[in-house]
Amino acid sequence: MIITKPFTKSTWLLLILFCCGCKPRNIVKHGGEKDLISFKPVLGISYTEIARRSENGLSFNSFGYQLEPQWKMKFVSNDSTSIYSPTKKRFINFPLTRGYDSVFNTARAWLKVKTMTKDSLVVELLKAYADSVDTRGAKVYMIFYADNYIANVLHGNLSKCKSPSLKDTVYIKGLAAVANKNVEKAFAARQPVELTSKSNRIKIEKRPAEPSMLNNFDTSSEYMGPEFDITIDKAYANFYYSFSIFVDPLGNMHYGRPLTVFLEEDRKVTYIHLSKAVMNSYLKYYLNLKPGTTLGIVHTSEIAVHVTGKRSM
């Protein structure tokens, strides 16, 4: 048994001094009370996001996700912003919560101002954890130009600013070379696979991604995970299978994986066997596939299909 003595006054004093000397973690609690950032110098200035880049300067990651400039924003006051909604075709006011260390929250996003002038803004996206925000950031940067700067200095020409860089092109070429040799290394195509039917027996509908407040108007799921509903009339039986397909640069299909959960391995094996047969018969014979591309580079990518067979009566 270990017996500890009660702390003396001097011991408590040392502990208090030690705790006061500790450096706080690099986490900002919501509702920070000191060093609140002020947007007074830029109130009323309309900004348009012209680029979004990761720390390495790329706008793409290894999964094919593209960081796209999407925001149009104006600071109305120190507690509200006005952000353009592409769905509603108008600006919507959002509450603005300010934190210290140039951190603020608006439109369901935590952000950190890196630079702020009347001509431009550089803002870093932050990661949120429950009631805390990590100020170390996600290393993704949003670059804004003031609309007046765009009109008077750039003369409205944003094509070069918004275009992917040469570095992006080199990176995508490298990913494509690997994916085209091994379909398991496929990545999302920015211009995804297109399906068309050769027969009036086959109907194809692509599932759209709806921009909304819940997804911050992000419709990237349309190219990150393209999904198609395919209906086959006069099939050999009534069936329904969901599975993924790798589409190579020549438009050839390669079976991916079943998109359902199995409690028994035998059922999974049977499901794969039957759904692969559907792909190798109906889909290969009755569909035309245009492979996906990114930056004009054709490469292997993966799609999801939900195939319904309707037996003729």
Rank of each mutant, 00 (worst) to 15 (best):
N56L: 02
S165H: 10
V305Q: 00
S10R: 13
A138K: 14
T270I: 11
I172T: 09
K118Q: 15
G309R: 10
T97E: 08
K118E: 13
N288M: 03
S54T: 08
A177H: 05
E222T: 14
Q70C: 00
R108F: 09
V76K: 11
E222G: 13
N280P: 03
D147N: 15
N105D: 02
K234E: 08
S163K: 13
Y286D: 09
I232K: 10
K5R: 12
K114D: 15
N288F: 10
I202D: 07
D147S: 15
H306Y: 10
A277G: 05
N280Q: 14
K167P: 02
K114Y: 01
S197H: 10
W110F: 13
Y241R: 05
K310P: 05
K127W: 08
Y241A: 01
R90H: 04
Q70M: 06
M116T: 04
T308N: 11
H155V: 08
Y285D: 07
A179M: 11
F144G: 11
Y100R: 15
K88N: 13
I303E: 01
A146E: 00
A151E: 11
R207H: 12
R52N: 08
N216Y: 01
P211V: 02
D218V: 09
P291S: 04
G64I: 07
I37V: 06
N26L: 05
L195K: 14
L43A: 07
A235I: 08
E205S: 13
K114F: 04
S54G: 14
F246Y: 15
L121I: 09
T115Y: 02
T219R: 02
